[in-house]
């Protein structure tokens, strides 16, 4: 049962930031509520004040600037991203990822900002954002700061956001030509959280040498993580199946998975191995095509 609280429904970012500052000691932000309400009901959180930011229209947008890339407001819903015309080229992976995230009702209501703020290492958006080299913009009454997505996720359900701060925007740099990105999620039931997920973004030179690659793993560590050892194996080389296999092996070794009711640590490592190779191959073929 949810413990009662004071409710605030700011309509502008400024109003919200002032409230965050004022109730600095005991508040919780609610956006779509898809994750937060469960925590409230389980009594895991019992905030005195709940600040509902869902009504802040100015944070609900997807903007594309051909050169600079994409900007997505924190309150953009999963569904809006899933069906946005702006998810083209290597950004198509965002819409594909959102399509795999949970079920229509959750996508209709849940926000991308809420998702990554929740800090679930099994969340779908974070690995994709990492692979695409995203930054996040945080705001507080004191001002704004920009953080690399990699630094944003810290630990299980923990982010680098300070109290009084909120996530306002996700920025995705425009990818260089011949870049392809792909995402895959392993689960038993289609709409489930990932047992393991892998996102990969590959850039190729004219001669198909891999000039850049970013691989990110979900549900394979206490936070979404880059598989840098795997990337190092591929970078600067012409990617072959043998190299992909090696990269998979490396990713599987650098991952820090746990055993739980969904899978053992050992099996998760196997999944990382196989999926890293598969999804990077797909990203590569997209890079060639694009």
């Amino acid at each position: 049962m949810i413990k009662d609280f004071e409710y605030f429904g700011p309509k502008t970012l400024n109003e919200a930031l002032v409230l965050l500052d004022k109730y600095r000691d005991d508040y919780k932000i609610i956006a779509g509520g898809q994750s937060l309400i469960i925590l409230l009901r389980q009594g895991l959180l019992q905030p005195e004040n709940v600040i509902d930011i869902y009504g802040i229209k100015e944070l609900d947008y997807i903007k594309s600037d051909g050169k600079k890339g994409l900007k997505i407001g924190a309150l953009t819903t999963h569904r809006e991203i899933e069906y946005s015309d702006l998810m083209k080229g290597s950004f198509k992976v965002l819409s594909e990822m959102e399509h795999l995230l949970s079920t229509p009702q959750t996508r209709n209501r849940g926000t991308i900002g809420g998702n990554i703020s929740h800090g679930d290492p099994a969340g779908d958006p974070a690995p994709v954002l990492m692979a695409l080299g995203a930054n996040v913009k945080l705001a507080s009454v004191a001002g704004e700061r920009i953080l690399d997505m990699e630094k944003f996720s810290v630990d299980y359900f923990e982010t680098a956001m300070e109290h009084g701060e909120m996530l306002v925007e996700i920025e995705l740099p425009a990818p260089p030509p011949h870049t392809g990105a792909a995402y895959t999620k392993f689960n038993i039931i289609a709409s489930d959280m990932a047992t393991v997920s892998v996102a990969s973004c590959v850039t190729l030179a004219a001669d198909d040498t891999c000039t850049d690659v970013r691989i990110a793993l979900g549900a394979a560590a206490p936070r979404p993580m880059r598989a840098k050892a795997a990337e190092a194996i591929l970078k600067g080389k012409k990617i072959t199946d043998a190299l992909l296999k090696k990269a998979g092996q490396a990713a599987s070794e650098e991952a820090e998975p746990v055993s739980d009711i969904s899978a053992s640590e050992e099996y998760r490592r196997e999944l990382v191995k196989v999926l890293t190779a598969r999804v990077t191959k797909e990203a590569m073929s997209r890079a060639k095509a694009g």
Partner: peptide
Amino acid sequence: GACTVVMNGKSVKSCSVLALS
């Protein structure tokens, strides 16, 4: 999904929306 209603044209789970929202 048993609690699904349509809110502003879209399906949502009414157990996961604060009424004040």
